[in-house]
């Protein structure tokens, strides 16, 4: 079987290492150019099953703000990103919200939870309504 070289730009941190992964079929045989373990793990996954963190907002009732930012607690397969966002578009929560609250557990059976990225007080309590 012939091996091929796939260039991968790491997105793990702002250093942004550009490296290469050498593949034999679907098997990683060599990696060069990455400068940390996290980067190598990212590159190894990126060539076979790319994943991304997902952030969006959900609607809030009775809150000082009308929208709550939410974040996945782990990366989501790339092809499921839009499905996750569509799922979250239909979610509504009621204030108060504390940081880290699970808003959707095991989204779409992917094993990933979506959590509140910040706290939101009730409308009369602290922040004025937006």
């Amino acid at each position: 079987m012939t091996s091929r070289v796939q260039p991968i730009q790491c997105i793990g941190c702002p250093v942004g290492c550009g490296g290469e992964v050498v593949l034999d079929g679907d098997r990683v045989v060599e990696m060069r150019g990455f400068t940390c373990e996290k980067g190598e793990a990212y590159a190894a996954e990126e060539v076979v099953a790319p994943k991304r963190m997902v952030t969006t907002t959900v609607r809030v009732h009775g809150g000082a703000l009308h929208f709550l930012p939410v974040v996945s607690d782990g990366p989501v397969p790339k092809e499921a990103i839009f499905d996750c966002v569509r799922l979250l578009r239909g979610i509504e929560v009621t204030a108060p919200i504390e940081t880290g609250r699970v808003i959707v557990a095991d989204a779409l059976g992917l094993g990933v939870d979506f959590k509140a990225a910040r706290a939101i007080a009730v409308a009369s309590d602290g922040l004025r309504p937006a």
Binding site: P14, M53, T55, T56, T57, P69, V71, A117, R118
Partner: peptide, 17 residues
């Protein structure tokens, strides 16, 4: 609201909020 903040300061990946 995107992630990528705090990798140096808190050694974990946070959103802006």
């Amino acid at each position: 609201i995107h992630n990528g903040f705090g990798l140096r300061k808190f050694k974990e990946e946070l959103t802006g909020p």
